[in-house]
Nucleic acid binder design. Structure first.
Lengths: 316, 316
DNA sequence: CCAATCTATAGATAATTATCTATAAGATAC
DNA sequence: GTATCTTATAGATAATTATCTATAGATTGG
């Protein structure tokens, strides 16, 4: 029995014949002519190499083999029906996968969105990739994920981005640092200090350094640290100053303080970025819609910059 | 999603792509060219209207929808594998149905064959139809069964028959009947007696009456009875004489006796009859082969007339 | 950077399929 | 016994499918 050239249409016709016990009736129901049905059945029998129905006294008798095939078909169509249901859920965003890659810093804010989303859509898989900017950028280049979260989005040649949250950078110092007590600090006061910074290429550092450069300053004393937590702790213990995202700071941590640097405003934004040359999963589209509608409830309103409607519209 | 024009070949190709995670490898395994596979997958995706696999960095990634379809396909092919197994059993005669129609009298002998056969092939359905000659003949005309059992087979235009057992007819009388004590009886002694007979058309009666007619005798006193049992009992109670198949008589019944009618030999045979213009089920073919090989063991050897080999050979 | 490997696309073709119409032959019903 | 209904067969055709070859673009591995 060579299944290869059997189509589902053929099985559909066969099933109708078994159900109606009539070639002519099947033809009527399926909007075919009677010879077409006769021939289809004949072909199916030749493929199976076994009589499936027998005609006797203008009545169709289904053979044992025919009835078994009928049952097989019922099961098979049942599985495809199930698959259809699955697809419907997938398309409705109730199921599926939304793979998100984000830079380290984003892990302080994104869970506030992901938690409620995940509760609403418990069947959606949400694998998260967290890395430094270079790593996430590499993933983005290869298109390994559905959604990327950057502050400072990369070249948008094959991508679209939408801002959703301010990412204010602040200077932090130990409480007993000499600048901590000054009510007004300027950039000039800072450049001679030792700075604890993330690796070159990190958005925070890039932003800070480009600001410095444009104003003709150069840092004389920097220490590279691998994580924002490390910077925070090191700053608290007096190793130097830090520039970090406001969101990174625990609300009530008193081991350090923010400097009020008057002449520097290192404001950036968080972006959702998606590639336009790759298929975006239904779940990912659905997540972005959810974000658009729920940003204000999930995140601190004062920082929200909801520009996701444009992004979502452009994805339709 | 319109399944109609999807063939199993297409699913086979898809499954191979999922398994190998490679279009080229699939092409090699299925002896196709790479573009063919690419195109097949494309067509399947268009049919499902959902991406099933995504290519990234020369690697095939299977989407959620693709994996679900793969699982569906596995189940579907599983069902068809089961069906194949079922067909194999059907063809081997281990499964299926063998519908047998027989005249009343045959029910005394056929079970001796059917019992052992059924024990050997417990999964074969063996629906039996028992009727008088006219009824079985009607079924035969309509081809409602696989095998018919007749003594005196009907016209064999669309049928073949094979003898398997003698069917000797004997005259029986009550023990106290005046003829019972005579050691030699002739036909002439009998014609004036009252005869208890089956309906006209029954093979037994036909055979007896044709013998009478050819020798110029006419029965003057007959009573029609509906069953062989009724005749046996009525004869035992002295209502008249009977002509019945030897096989109908219980071995040790002493309520009547057989007459030794010297000048009459009403010998006929039991035949298996099959229609040649109808498909014969594997189970039926198998049963006839079984009968051919086991007649001697199952039935009283002295009556066996095994001419089934010709019948079986002509059915191949 | 080059050679090898991968997938996608375009264009072509032979085979297969899904249909139809017309017709025949067998069965049923009144 | 005629009209009606059923299935089967033959012949025709348009659509679809399964393939191929050739080629291009991307990626990978030295």
């Amino acid at each position: 029995m060579d299944l290869r050239h059997i189509s589902f249409r053929l099985l559909e016709v066969f099933m109708c014949v078994v159900k109606t016990r009539s070639i002519s009736e099947t033809a009527r129901q399926l909007h075919l002519t009677q010879p077409t049905v006769s021939q289809q059945i004949k072909r199916l029998q030749e493929t199976v190499n076994e009589p499936l129905v027998m005609v006797n006294q203008q009545r169709i008798h289904v053979t044992e083999a025919g009835f078994a095939l009928f049952q097989t078909c019922q099961q098979v169509f049942g599985h495809f029906d199930d698959y259809q249901d699955y697809l419907a859920e997938l398309r409705g965003g109730e199921r599926g996968r939304c793979k998100i890659a984000m830079v380290n810093t984003a892990q302080y804010i994104l869970p506030k969105l992901l938690g409620p989303y995940s509760n609403l859509h418990p069947h959606v898989e949400l694998p998260l990739e967290i890395g430094n900017r270079a790593e996430v950028l590499a993933r983005f280049e290869r298109g390994e994920d559905d959604i990327y979260v950057f502050s400072h989005p990369p070249s948008l040649e094959h991508a679209k981005a939408g801002r959703f949250l301010q990412n204010p950078l602040v200077f932090i110092a130990a409480n007993n640092h000499k600048l901590a007590s000054k009510s007004h600090v300027t950039l000039h006061d800072l450049v001679s200090e030792r700075f604890l910074l993330r690796e070159p290429g990190s958005a925070t550092r890039m932003l800070f350094e480009s600001e410095l450069q444009s104003r003709g300053f150069v840092l004389s004393n920097t220490v590279q640290m691998a994580s924002n937590e490390a910077i925070r702790v090191a700053v608290g213990s007096g190793m130097g100053l830090g520039v970090v995202s406001r969101h990174v700071l625990p609300p009530h941590d008193t081991s350090f303080c923010m400097l009020n640097v008057e002449d520097v405003n290192l404001a950036s934004h968080w972006y959702f970025v998606v590639r336009t040359d790759r298929h975006l999963s239904h779940a990912a589209r659905n997540f972005l819609k959810f974000a658009q509608l729920n940003l204000e409830q999930c995140l601190d309103k004062q920082w929200v910059t909801n520009e996701l409607s444009q992004l979502n519209e452009s994805l339709n």
